[in-house]
Design a protein around this nucleic acid. Structure first.
Lengths: 204, 204
DNA sequence: CACAACCTAAACTATGCAGTTCAATTGCAG
DNA sequence: CTGCAATTGAACTGCATAGTTTAGGTTGTG
C-alpha cells in the first residue's frame, strides 16, 4: 500500500480547485505559491493539503478538470449536415478564439514547460486537448468524405494540418507575448486563409 | 545614467555562456541554479556576476547568442534558382529537424513560459527566431512568384502557414513530451504532406 | 444536545536559491 | 620583477517556499 497520490474531496474542495486555477493562471506553476492558492480559495493550507498530496497533483487536478469542462463545451459546434467550408470556418473561429484565450495560452505554457520533468502532465494534456479535438474533427471529415465533399486519404493528417493552420501568425505571436489583443478582423482573416489552404488541398 | 543592465566581458566569458547554455537546457530557467551554472562553467559565482547583472540577463544573452549562431547556420540552405517543390522540401526538412531538436524545444518552453512575466524575452526570441526565419523564406517566395512558379498575394502569410504546417503532429507531440524520438520516415512524411498542402494552395 | 468529521490559524521545519562581500590569489603587461 | 586587474572561494544575507504540526473552533446530523 504505497501512497497512491490520492485526491480526497471535502466540503471546500471546489473552492480549492477554483482558487488554484486562478493563481496558476496568473502566476504559472513555479510562480504560484501554495499560500497564495489557499488564500485565494479562502481556505487554510492544512485543508488544502488534506485534499491533495502536493502542488503538482493539485495542478494536474486543475488541468484535468478544465479540460473536461472544455471538451463538454466544444461538443456541439459541428453541424454534421453542413458543407465543409461552413463547418471548417465555424470550427476554426471557435478553435482560434479558444487558443488565444488567456487560459489556453497559460495552460500551454505551463504544460509545455513542466512536461520536460513531469511527463505524465504533458501526456495527459495532449490527450485531452489537441488529440481529443482532432478526433472530434475527424468524425466530421469522414462524413464529408463519404459524401464526396472532401478527398483525403488520411483524415487524421488533414485534421492535424488544419489545427496547425489555425495557429498561424496570431497564436505564435500570442504565446511569446508579442501581441496580446486580437481584433475580430484579424481572427477572421487568419481563419479565412486557413480554410482556403486546407480546402485547396482537400476540397472537391 | 541608470544601470543599463550591461554585459561586461572578460577572460572566461565564453565558458560562462556555454555553461549557462548547458544548464538552462537541462533544467529549464527556474530549475537552473546559478551555483550549478558557475560550477558547470568552471568559474566562481563572483566572476559570473561580474559579467552579468542577473540570471535573466544571463539567459537572454545565451538565447541571443544561440539564435545568432542558428541564423548563420540556416543561411545557406535556399537555392534561389531551384523550383518551389524542391526548395520547400529541403527547407521544411531542415526546419523540422531543428524544431524537433532538444535545444529548440527547451528554448521554446523556456521563452514561452517566461514571456508571461518577462516580455522582452519572448519579444526577442520571436524576432530572432520565427520572424527572422519567415523573412528569409519570403525572399525566396517573391522570386518564385516573379518567375510565375507560385501565386500568392500575401507571401508573408504563405511563409507563416508553411512553417506552421511543418509543426503538424511531430512538433506538437514533441513539445509535450509525448514522443521523443523521430524516424527519418516520420519526418519525411510530415514534410511531404506540408509541401503538398502549401503547393495545392499556392502552386501553379 | 452530543458527537464526529471537518476546518482553521499560525507557528514551525527544512530547504534552496539569488545575489553580495572580501581577503587572498592568480596571471598578464610593461 | 612589479603592479594592476581579473579571478577565486567561501561565507553570508535575505528572502521565499513546500509541506507539517498542533491545539482549538465550526458545522451538520442523528
Amino acid at each position: 500500500m504505497d501512497a497512491p497520490a490520492t485526491i480526497k474531496k471535502g466540503r471546500k474542495f471546489d473552492a480549492v480547485l477554483s482558487g488554484a486555477r486562478a493563481v496558476f493562471l496568473r502566476d504559472g506553476f513555479e510562480g504560484a505559491s501554495v499560500d497564495d492558492i489557499a488564500a485565494e480559495a479562502g481556505v487554510s493550507k492544512a485543508t488544502l493539503y488534506s485534499y491533495v498530496p502536493d502542488k503538482r497533483m493539485l495542478f494536474q487536478e486543475v488541468a484535468r478538470h478544465e479540460c473536461a469542462r472544455m471538451a463538454e463545451a466544444t461538443l456541439d459546434i459541428v453541424d454534421f449536415a453542413a458543407p465543409p467550408r461552413e463547418v471548417m470556418t465555424a470550427t476554426a473561429t471557435s478553435l482560434l478564439r479558444f487558443l488565444l484565450s488567456n487560459f489556453s495560452l497559460q495552460m500551454f505554457r505551463i504544460c509545455a514547460a513542466e512536461s520536460a520533468r513531469f511527463p505524465e502532465l504533458g501526456q495527459a494534456f495532449y490527450e485531452s486537448g489537441p488529440e481529443m479535438g482532432c478526433n472530434r474533427m475527424v468524425l466530421y471529415l469522414k462524413v464529408a468524405i463519404a459524401r464526396g465533399e472532401l478527398v483525403a486519404e488520411d483524415p487524421v493528417m488533414m485534421a492535424e494540418q488544419f489545427s496547425e493552420l489555425c495557429k498561424t501568425r496570431l497564436w505564435t505571436r500570442a504565446i511569446f507575448g508579442v501581441q496580446t489583443e486580437f481584433t475580430d478582423a484579424e481572427i477572421e482573416h487568419v481563419v479565412h486563409e486557413a480554410v482556403g489552404t486546407i480546402l485547396a488541398r482537400y476540397g472537391t
